[in-house]
Design a protein around this nucleic acid. Structure first.
Lengths: 198, 198
DNA sequence: ACACTAACGATACTGCTAGTTCCGGAACCG
DNA sequence: CGGTTCCGGAACTAGCAGTATCGTTAGTGT
């Protein structure tokens, strides 16, 4: 989203410091996760990044564009697609990486921030949706493989099963309840599977 | 929360218009549900209520106090505690009234607003928590009766079962996905029960 | 070398939004 | 009536997004 206005004639004048972009997005992300969009000011972001405000606005046309760019850098957390051979193993591996993420300071702040701002800004909502869908797609793929193997009933509602596991985390983040821990993963997965096993 | 500063000597001076309080909280609630806290201005609330801004601030010391008072008036939605004799019946009745609520314009807006602002304001979080807990307590009571009757395993994780059903709605509100409908209730309840039946 | 150009940090400035307070007048009590 | 509180509208104010300017700096191209 940055560099929309690439200069016509490259190579003339002082080049942009290649590290400045990431210094700014990192500072923005930290403040956004800490305080949310409305309570984060561009002045603060610039100060924390150690740059002038003009340097920020040379890269992104508005605070909102900056916020989206900053969230994009966080959003890239990778979840491996597991294929352990059993549906318990796959689902547990998938869920375990999510639970581990949600139990870090950054992960929890990311979820809180995304949930709050999703209802305010459509682009942030799209980012959150797509990070959620990526994770869910892996789980769905595992479930479909399990159906082929005969572990899971053919008429199982795959979408619902997947959303159960994610929904419980979402709901607890909002309510400020303690999140599921790694040692709870197997129990929750078993619980969910019981509904759709053959 | 209003009238913290009740005048020492009542009956002196011009009395407050008894309808003004509710006119203001109603206007505030409408705008809060429509736009959320940050995008709602006290000017708008006063204009919509047909009063001056000073009249608002005579009653609540800050915009945040007003918002809490406005949410309190909405929070009183009642859900009947069902006791149909079977666990399917109880859970379905409980969930059905929640799904019906979530599928109204006001209900959906209430959930969206509560979810967003819960992470911003602890008092609104407390309101949302207590409306959620009231509903969950009913479901938990049903499940405990079912355990006594022998319909449900004694070691069933009652809390988790209850949170599954609520969590799926929460997650879908945030992601902007279509909510479960009344005709989906039985399926979802059956799905959940399969995990904990004897 | 040297002129040219764009980026840089700092700072001041502008325009606007929105929370909060002030004011002159009106309503009500005793 | 006199004192008190309420009322709506207007004024005040702080904060902040976004822009402009300045002296400086790090490159490019000849």
């Amino acid at each position: 989203m940055a560099d929309l206005d690439v200069p016509r004639r490259r190579g003339r004048g002082r080049p942009r410091d290649p590290e400045t972009d990431s210094k700014i997005t990192r500072a923005a992300a930290e403040l956004l996760l800490l305080r949310g969009f409305d309570k984060t000011t561009v002045d603060e972001v610039a100060a924390r990044a150690g740059v002038g405000k003009a340097t920020v606005y040379r890269r992104w046309p508005s605070k909102e564009d900056l916020a989206v760019a900053a969230m994009e850098t966080l959003y890239s957390a990778e979840f491996p697609e597991p294929d352990t051979g059993t549906i318990e193993g796959d689902l547990a591996a998938n869920y375990r990486s999510f639970i581990a993420f949600a139990n870090t300071d950054t992960g929890l702040a990311y979820l809180r921030m995304s949930i709050t701002e999703s209802l305010r800004d459509e682009r942030i909502a799209a980012l959150y949706r797509s990070s959620t869908e990526r994770r869910e797609n892996d789980a769905r793929a595992s479930l479909r493989r399990a159906i082929e193997r005969g572990e899971v009933r053919r008429d199982a509602d795959v979408d619902t099963a997947v959303q159960y596991l994610g929904g419980i985390v979402t709901a607890r983040v909002i309510l400020g309840r303690p999140l599921p821990q790694l040692e709870d993963v197997d129990t929750l997965v078993q619980f969910t599977l019981r509904g759709i096993r053959r």
